[in-house]
Simulated scan of single mutants.
Amino acid sequence: MMLIDEAGVPDAALPVTEFTAHLRLGTGFSAETLQEPVLRSFLRAAIAAIEARTAKALVRRVFALTVHDWAARDAHPLPVAPVTRLVSLGFRDRAGTETASGLDVVWLAEDAHRPVLRAAGGALPAIPRGQSAVLRFEAGYAAAWGELPADLGQAVLLLAAHYYEYRDATSLGGGCMPFGVTSLIERYRALRLHAGAGR
Rank of each mutant, 00 (worst) to 15 (best):
V181F: 02
S101E: 13
Q131G: 09
P149C: 02
R187S: 11
P37L: 05
L86K: 00
F137C: 05
R61S: 08
A169V: 11
D93N: 12
R94E: 14
E110D: 15
L103H: 01
F42R: 09
F91L: 11
T97M: 13
A21D: 14
V134R: 08
G198K: 07
Y166D: 14
L124G: 00
L124Q: 00
R73N: 12
A95E: 13
R61G: 11
I47E: 02
K56F: 04
L103P: 04
F63C: 03
E186S: 13
S30L: 13
F137E: 01
L117G: 02
D104I: 09
D5G: 06
D69E: 12
P128R: 01
M1G: 07
S88V: 05
I185F: 02
L103K: 02
S88D: 07
A13C: 07
M177D: 10
A52G: 11
V181L: 01
T66M: 06
R44P: 05
A64F: 00
P125K: 04
V83Q: 04
L43H: 01
F29L: 14
E186Q: 13
Y141H: 15
F91T: 10
P15T: 04
A81E: 00
D151L: 07
L3V: 06
A48K: 11
H194V: 13
L172F: 15
L86N: 01
G8N: 04
F63N: 00
A13M: 00
H194S: 14
T84N: 12
A109P: 08
A139H: 03
F29M: 13
L103T: 03
L191T: 10
H22W: 15
L14H: 01
R24L: 12
V67H: 06
D5F: 02
T17I: 12
A144N: 13
R118H: 06
R53G: 01
V80E: 01
T54F: 00
L23A: 07
E36V: 14
Y141W: 15
A64D: 05
L152V: 11
R136F: 05
A46D: 07
T27F: 10
H194T: 15
A197I: 06
G28T: 00
A21L: 08
T27V: 14
T17F: 11
V16C: 03
Q35M: 12
I185T: 01
A45N: 11
G102D: 10
D93I: 06
R114E: 11
G174R: 15
L78P: 07
A160M: 06
P79Y: 02
R61H: 01
L78C: 05
P82T: 02
V38I: 14
F179L: 14
P178S: 03
Y164D: 09
Y164V: 03
A45K: 13
G28C: 04
R61F: 06
R85T: 11
C176T: 15
L86F: 06
R92H: 05
G173H: 10
L86C: 07
T170S: 15
H113T: 08
F63E: 00
A12L: 13
A143I: 13
R136H: 09
H76S: 02
R167Q: 11
L39P: 03
H194N: 14
L78I: 08
T84M: 04
M1D: 06
R129W: 14
G175M: 04
D151N: 08
W107P: 04
L78R: 01
S30D: 13
S88F: 02
L172W: 13
L39N: 05
A144V: 15
L148F: 03
A55Q: 12
T66E: 14
A7K: 10
